[in-house]
Each structure stands twice: as structure tokens, then as C-alpha cells.
Design a protein around this nucleic acid. Structure first.
Ligand code: FES
Ligand code: FES
Lengths: 144, 144
DNA sequence: TATATTTAAGATATTTTTGTCCAAAATAAA
DNA sequence: TTTATTTTGGACAAAAATATCTTAAATATA
């Protein structure tokens, strides 16, 4: 469904957000350790998300990553996925035709579009804040 | 959603099935030309599907690929996807945790499971025959 | 049996994704 | 200003996915 990069990105953001809720900035090493993702690769992905203004970074001592309350509540999962994986999952043809086209549908089109819309809805109606608060309360885990 | 191999496999099977409905066997070259997929790669994938008894192959002159009416009506899209991409799409965790676990859910679990079930339903309720007849009637296309 | 045709199988090549490493830039504090 | 800390960016490496090529095996027909 999502690329590894995207999975790592989502988990990193959720961890950073929960820490931000407590007012603490986190270093990339902490993120990797607490989300079960490779450190250097996760750093790359956070670089992308920083450019998209989904997370804020600060260099130097006492630096690290942080997400504001405003960001948490405004940014949807969809924004993260789109920033990393692009919009193929939201608009692309299920059978890989150059584009999804209602006029000349591929054999899977009708049924596929429904699922694709469900995915879009799921990711558009879920904010970072939603998942971060749930994770902070201990109801969910980022690694096992 | 699906790998390229899986996309090619599905398109190949639909084309072979429509030809089988007319009683004609098709050669790998025809399949590639009519489904817009790379020939040698598609041959590999059809080898896999042949082993899974989803399609039948015949070597030699007048040989080629063919699917029986019985197979067409019994084999679900799910079988094709599972044969090529495995069962990760049906059972795997959306955030890449080693397995999906209801007891220790990842942050996306609840919403993700619903979508995953929709995908499973879509692929389990669609047979090769369904898509082949629709394609044969000209309502859908395999390439553009 | 000899020949032509077609899939099967294995080796190889290319591209993309995933992942690591290291030096540079930014910055806070002593 | 110097030092230590942290992200940033670029080069590099490894693994997986995608794709091609070549030869072998099977088989129908003459
Ligand atoms: S044309 Fe393939 S999903 Fe719309
Ligand atoms: S645990 Fe992640 S989807 Fe179920």
C-alpha cells in the first residue's frame, strides 16, 4: 500500500507529535529508536517532510524535530502520504494504465475507484493529532 | 497497490480469457501486444500463473495459453493477486509492523483494516469471467 | 524421423527503492 | 570565539523489482 519510506515517515511523525504534545523536541536517533526505523533513512524522509512544512527542524544543541499543535490538527495523513509517495495512490489506475480515465476504463476501474475513494477518505479525515493522542494514551504501538 | 508484475498478470489473464471465450489459444507475443506489457516479463509471470493452475499452457505449434470456462468462473482476482504478490495486501500491517495484530494495533490499524477488507471483498467477489466478458463487450480497455 | 513452433527455465542486465556514510552548515552555550 | 551538538545534503552501497536474452524442452505436423 505505502512505500517503506512512507511507513517510516508516518511512524516518525506520530512519535515526534506525541513528544511535542509534552513539549519536548526529539533527535533523529530518538525517532529511529522509538519507531523501529533505520536512522539515516528516516533522516532523509524527515528532510522531505520538513520541506513540506509538516514538521519543524532545528539544528544545533537542544535542536531536533517538533510539530506545533496547530500543525498537528491541520495536517492530514493524506498530506504525509502525498509528500512522500505522490498522488498515484489517490488518482492512479489500479492496473497501471497511464492514467485513470472514466471514459475508457480498465477492467478493474469501477470496483477499484470505490476502494481508492475509501483510502482517500480514510487519509483525509485523519489528522496527525488524532493518531498522536491515541498513541500517547497507549492504545496503539509503533513497534513490536 | 499491486506490483507491476501483478498488473501485467491480471491484464494478460483477461486477454487470454476473452480469446478463450472465442475458442482461440494465444501466443505470448499476442498477449504482450494486446495488453501493453513487456513480452519476456509477461512470459515469466504467466509461468507462475500456469504453475498455480490459473491458466493452461501448451508448447509447440498451435500451442499457446488458454483458460477453460470452468477456470474463468471459479478463479477470483484474489487468486491471481495472491499468486503473484503474496498475501501482504490481504493480511499485512499498513505501517509495516511485522504482522497485523488486533491486540497491539498500530496507529492506522482500525481504519486500515476496514479498507483492507474492502480490497479483499472486491478481489474475492470478482472472477476472471466477470472481467473477461465485460472486456469482450468493449466496455473496458487493457491499453491506451 | 526431421522440422518448425512455442513455452519453460536460467542467466544476465537495468532501474528503482532502500539504506548507509561522511562532511558541511547551523546554532546554542560556555 | 570556541566547542559541542544537531540537521542537511551529497555521494555511495546494497537489495529488490523490473526487464531482457539465450538455450532447452515439449510437441504438432509433414
Ligand atoms: S482506468 Fe484503471 S482504475 Fe480507472
Ligand atoms: S497492526 Fe497495523 S494494520 Fe493492523
Amino acid at each position: 500500500m505505502f512505500s517503506k519510506a512512507c511507513e517510516y515517515g508516518i511512524k516518525a511523525i506520530i512519535y515526534i507529535a506525541t513528544q511535542s504534545l509534552s513539549g519536548t523536541r526529539v533527535k533523529i536517533g530518538d525517532v529511529a529508536n522509538n519507531s523501529g526505523s533505520p536512522e539515516a533513512f528516516t533522516a532523509k524522509i524527515l528532510g522531505t517532510l520538513t520541506k513540506h512544512n509538516i514538521v519543524n527542524s532545528h539544528t544545533g544543541p537542544y535542536g531536533g524535530f517538533e510539530i506545533s499543535s496547530k500543525q498537528m490538527k491541520q495536517v492530514k495523513m493524506r498530506d504525509i502520504v502525498e509528500a512522500i509517495d505522490g498522488d498515484t495512490i489517490f488518482n492512479g489506475c489500479g492496473l497501471g494504465l497511464n492514467e485513470c480515465n472514466h471514459e475508457q476504463p480498465c477492467p478493474m476501474h469501477h470496483k477499484f475507484v470505490k476502494v481508492r475513494e475509501e483510502i482517500k477518505t480514510m487519509l483525509t479525515t485523519t489528522t496527525i493529532y488524532d493518531l498522536a493522542t491515541e498513541y500517547k494514551s497507549g492504545k496503539t504501538v509503533l513497534m513490536r
